[in-house]
Structures are given as C-alpha cells and as structure tokens.
Simulated assay, not measured.
Amino acid sequence: MAAIAGALLSLAGAAQAQSAVTIYGRVDAGVDYQSNVATAGGGSGSLWRASGNQWGTSMIGFKGTEDLGAGLNAFFLLESGFDATKGSTNGSALFNRRSYVGLAGSAGSLKFGKNLFIDNDVWFLDPTGQQFIGTATLVRGRNWQGADNVIEYQTPTWGGFNATFQTALGEQAGSIKNKRKDGVSLVYQNQGLELRAIYDLIRDSNGKYGSGLNSDGTRNTVFDTSKELILGGTYTIDKLKLFLGYENLRAPDVAPGSPDKVNHYWLGANYQVTPALTLIGSVFRVNVNNGGGNANLFMAGANYSLSKRTLLYVGAGTVRNSSTANFSVEASNNNPLPGQNQNGAYAGISHSF
C-alpha cells in the first residue's frame, strides 16, 4: 500500500507541475436498503448497508494530453474505482477502470490499454445514468464490464455520426478467440435526438458463448459470455429528456435446456424541475427463455445539486419476479428467492473534483 500511495503522490506532483495533466474524481456514499434478500439458511430477510457506488462509482483519475503539432495529440488516462464506505478498490488492479494511452487527430483516435467495455455506452441510453437500479440490473451486470488488453478506434464525427470499434485480446496461446471481446458502437446526434446501436461479443475460455467455467468453478451463463445487441435513443424537449432502449443476449453454446436468450426492454424520462432538481422515472422488463422467467423493474429517483460539484440523490425501486425468476432490485448479488419480489432504496451524497 505504501508503494501505491507513493505512486499516486508522484503523479499528483507531476500534475501540479504540468498544466496538461489533470487530477479528477468523485466520492459517492450513502445508505442502502433491500427487502427479501435470500439467506444461507434458505430463508430471506431485509438488508441495511452503506451504499458505496449505488448512484455512481467513486473514482480517482489522472489524464493528460500533449500537442504534437499538425493537429495530432498524444493522450493518456489512468482511473481507479473504489468503495468509499470501505476505502477499498473495485478489484485488485491499481487502475481498475481505465489505463490507456493513445493518439488523436483529424482521422479519429486510437487507444491501447485497459478501458470500460464498449457496451458501457448503454450509459447514454439509461434514464438513471447507470445507477444500481438501472439498465444493468435485469441483465445481471452483463452490460457493465471492463476490458483488458484493449485496442480501440473512434472515427471523427461526420454529420452527427461517429463509430467506435473495440477489441480486447484474450492473450491465449493457440487461439485468437479464447476469452476475446469485440464490439462496435454507433451513434447519431442531431439537435435533441440521439440514436445508438451497440453490438458486441464476449467469448469464454473456449472461444464460445456459455460453455466455459467461471473463476469459482460455476458454468458460464448467457449473462456471462454471450452475443449482445443494444438499440435505443433519447430525445430532449426543453426540460424533458425521454429514453427508450432494447437489449438482446444470445449464448448458443450453453448446456442444452439452459437459458440462452434474453430480451430486455426499458423506457424512462428525466425532468429538470429547477436548475438544481431533476426527477427520474423508468420501467424495465426482461424475458429469459428456457425457464429463466421474467421480471418487471420500476424505479423512481431524484438528483439535487447543492453546487456544480456536490449532489444529493435518492432512488427507490421494486422488482416483480415470475415464479422461476430471482432478479434483484439492484445490480448486486443480493437476490431474492425464486418467485419473490424485492423492494429497494438508497440515498446519499456525491462530490466530484
């Protein structure tokens, strides 16, 4: 830990000495409640806990650019997420969210390193801004992943349109497919309209979809390694922003009879009551084949800005599961028993710097 602290202090010192380097971050914490959480004894009970990242990930980052001339720039970004309630990082890596370097110019940008996986662009389609009760909830975090060994290219914007292409190398001898991730994200923007399409592939250790094992020895599911399609858009009318989205998951290599297809739908709205207060409302539905069941998720929330950097937030939701489904109201492992419904709520403070 001393070595890590020393490295961060060194970067901070460099940032003060170089105007092209910026330190940024966010600290988010509060309190969280969920009902009907399944217990080890086969029962269920309510759970009260501190909320570390329910509204948004706490993080610290360092970014910088250098003008190389002729319209070409070099850039880097180092970013680590953490849980403010425990002071622990979100994973064992020093920079567990992003650590990349690249070049940008008139032909677009090229990045090498670690980044969020390309389906994180669902953030732009999420009425909640990817809160714990949001687009990741009913797909068990499938659209909320990171990616190592990334090569990423983003085009310039032409007439409101741009595209991003990403591959994350699996680094497995004898195969270019095993554990590899690939994806493309397309966006079109015109005044208040924004349309997005994302398609990606997450392969397992066999280069397939749902046939491998997780690190804990359990078998992959359609929510772990699969083919994913996301379509959606937003439209802003004065103080009102509308959201509509669809997500499809397919894992053709899962064990026979296991769920291999998921359809996820949502719609929602943000309304800016005052410059400081924004109200949030959204509805999500998921259908899983082969006995996976279905669920409806309802969320309401509010953000209140005390300043440009400090925000108060509250969110509440309920998930209504079918008899064979056990989806949580939040994007967490605190699932109810199959067929049980679950309610949840959280509130807290987020400060950005």
Rank of each mutant, 00 (worst) to 15 (best):
residue 4 I to S: 11
residue 5 A to C: 10
residue 7 A to M: 15
residue 17 A to H: 08
residue 18 Q to R: 09
residue 22 T to P: 00
residue 24 Y to A: 15
residue 29 A to K: 08
residue 33 Y to W: 13
residue 37 V to L: 05
residue 37 V to N: 02
residue 40 A to S: 15
residue 41 G to Y: 00
residue 45 G to F: 12
residue 59 M to K: 15
residue 64 G to C: 08
residue 68 L to G: 01
residue 80 S to H: 12
residue 84 A to T: 02
residue 88 S to Q: 14
residue 90 N to Y: 08
residue 94 L to P: 06
residue 96 N to K: 07
residue 97 R to C: 04
residue 103 L to F: 01
residue 111 K to I: 00
residue 112 F to H: 02
residue 115 N to L: 01
residue 119 D to Y: 00
residue 120 N to K: 05
residue 120 N to D: 12
residue 126 D to C: 06
residue 131 Q to P: 01
residue 136 A to K: 04
residue 142 R to T: 04
residue 143 N to A: 11
residue 146 G to H: 09
residue 147 A to E: 06
residue 148 D to F: 03
residue 151 I to L: 13
residue 155 T to M: 02
residue 161 F to T: 05
residue 165 F to M: 06
residue 165 F to R: 08
residue 168 A to R: 06
residue 169 L to P: 07
residue 170 G to P: 02
residue 174 G to M: 05
residue 177 K to Y: 15
residue 180 R to P: 11
residue 182 D to R: 02
residue 185 S to G: 10
residue 186 L to K: 00
residue 189 Q to S: 13
residue 189 Q to T: 11
residue 197 A to M: 07
residue 208 K to V: 00
residue 210 G to P: 08
residue 212 G to F: 11
residue 223 F to I: 10
residue 227 K to C: 08
residue 230 I to Y: 00
residue 236 T to M: 05
residue 260 D to I: 07
residue 261 K to Q: 13
residue 262 V to E: 06
residue 263 N to Q: 13
residue 263 N to M: 10
residue 272 Q to M: 12
residue 276 A to C: 04
residue 277 L to N: 04
residue 277 L to H: 01
residue 281 G to P: 13
residue 285 R to A: 09
residue 286 V to W: 13
residue 287 N to G: 11
residue 297 L to D: 12
residue 301 G to H: 01
residue 316 A to H: 04
residue 316 A to T: 00
residue 317 G to H: 06
residue 327 F to G: 04
residue 332 S to A: 10
residue 351 H to P: 11
